[in-house]
């Protein structure tokens, strides 16, 4: 697709969407948002870039292969779940830091788990869209 408007807008929007995705991730525990929504928005930033500038460019921009994002996300999510077990509570038990930080709010292992979900969803969507899209370009 060769659209000047899309290319220009995507340059602005890609960064904006990524920032918005982190915002969604951080507010997600008690408010609408969370790792899943954040991951989708982050992936959509790269999908938008791919539509405007082609899939090879999007892969270069992403830097790491999507499958590594999935693996990393899963590993982080597992850590978030196991942290509760290390404290002698069941798997996935949330541990919270008592004192809230400015801007972010209270920190705890659910955030770690959510971050894992974020990266997993991010990776899965990128993997699916990239591999389907690239096949389409070959035809």
């Amino acid at each position: 697709m060769n659209s000047v408007i899309l290319v220009t807008v995507s340059r602005l929007l890609t960064g904006l969407l990524l920032v918005f995705s982190v915002f969604l991730l951080l507010r997600g525990h008690n408010l609408p948002g969370g790792g899943f929504a954040g991951g989708l928005v982050a992936a959509s930033a790269f999908v938008l870039h791919a539509l405007a500038n082609g899939f090879p460019s999007a892969r270069r921009l992403l830097g790491v292969p999507p499958r590594l994002l999935i693996g990393f996300g899963l590993a982080v999510a597992i850590l978030g779940g196991v942290a509760g077990m290390l404290a002698g509570r069941p798997f996935l038990t949330g541990l919270w830091d008592k004192t809230p930080l400015p801007v972010i709010g209270k920190l705890g292992t659910p955030l770690l788990f959510d971050a894992g979900v974020y990266f997993t969803v991010f990776g899965v969507v990128c993997l699916i869209v990239f591999s389907l899209g690239e096949e389409g370009e070959e035809d």
Partner: peptide, 8 residues
Amino acid sequence: ATLCMLTL
């Protein structure tokens, strides 16, 4: 599964 995914 995660380890296999990371070392594909």
